[in-house]
């Protein structure tokens, strides 16, 4: 093998021209934490969890191209601390009551929190009041759990070709909008098979049936970390 390489935490990683740091890392089996990145979709860059150090700066691994010979740092104490704080901020700004959430055990936000050993946060919780949308027969939109990763937006646009979602608002007043005449899920044409539904990393977009069917212990992240079951 004599293509270009760079290093992550000292380990040599091959890549092809145009690949991002996270793409090359995945192929080499190196986990870089992320929430809004998904290999099927164009990088988004909003969660900032994939922050790595490259060229003396902190950059997002999802949207930074790999450069031959570059030394990238991924698992430093500083980076993991910053990532943990980012996850704390996501918990603090929403309403995440995992014990009552059907996504629990299969949730990426939760799983990345575990992986980063997030136990609590020094910040006050914001307890926002966000609108719940239960108008759809099969799917619940619980905005309390939305982290604005736009995976549903991208999947609905690019895979489902329905373009059903968008983020509206600004700052902490951001909210997920449904692209339907009355702005509600029920009239949107979303169906259970939609990719948009499957890629939601949290319990924001959830099928209504089948909640809590998989017993504790056999859920996606029971007994294995997100780094091991990363898609």
């Amino acid at each position: 093998m004599n293509g270009p390489t760079f290093t992550i935490d000292g380990r040599s990683v091959p890549f092809t021209e145009g690949q991002s740091i996270i793409q090359a890392a995945r192929e080499a089996g190196i986990y870089i934490p992320h929430l809004c990145y998904h290999p099927e979709f164009r990088p988004h860059g909003s969660c900032r969890l994939c922050v790595v150090e490259a060229g003396g700066r902190s950059v997002p691994a999802c949207s930074t191209p790999a450069v031959a010979g570059q030394q990238v740092r991924n698992r430093t104490e500083r980076l993991d601390r910053m990532r943990r704080t980012l996850v704390e901020l996501l918990f603090v700004e929403g309403n995440h009551f995992c014990p009552a959430c059907p996504k629990s055990g299969n949730c990426k936000l939760q799983a990345v929190g575990y992986w980063l050993r997030m136990l609590d946060t020094p910040f006050p919780y914001l307890f926002p009041r966000r609108e719940l949308d239960a108008s759809h027969h099969d799917v619940l939109l619980d905005r309390d759990r939305c982290i604005f990763c736009e995976l549903c937006v991208r999947a609905s646009r690019e895979v489902d070709r329905k373009n059903l979602f968008a983020i509206g608002g600004k700052g902490t007043r951001c909210r997920l909008l449904v692209n339907s005449p009355d702005g509600r899920l029920g009239s949107s044409g979303l169906s259970l098979g939609d990719r948009a539904l499957q890629v939601c990393p949290t319990g924001a977009l959830l099928p209504r049936k089948g909640a809590f069917h998989v017993p504790v212990g056999r859920r996606l992240y029971d007994g294995r970390s997100i780094a091991e079951s990363d898609e």
């Binding site: 860059g45 969660c47 969890l49 604005f148």
Partner: peptide, 9 residues
């Protein structure tokens, strides 16, 4: 603008 976590929150 609310796009990224560190600034939004």
């Amino acid at each position: 603008c609310g796009f990224c976590t560190p600034c939004r929150v």
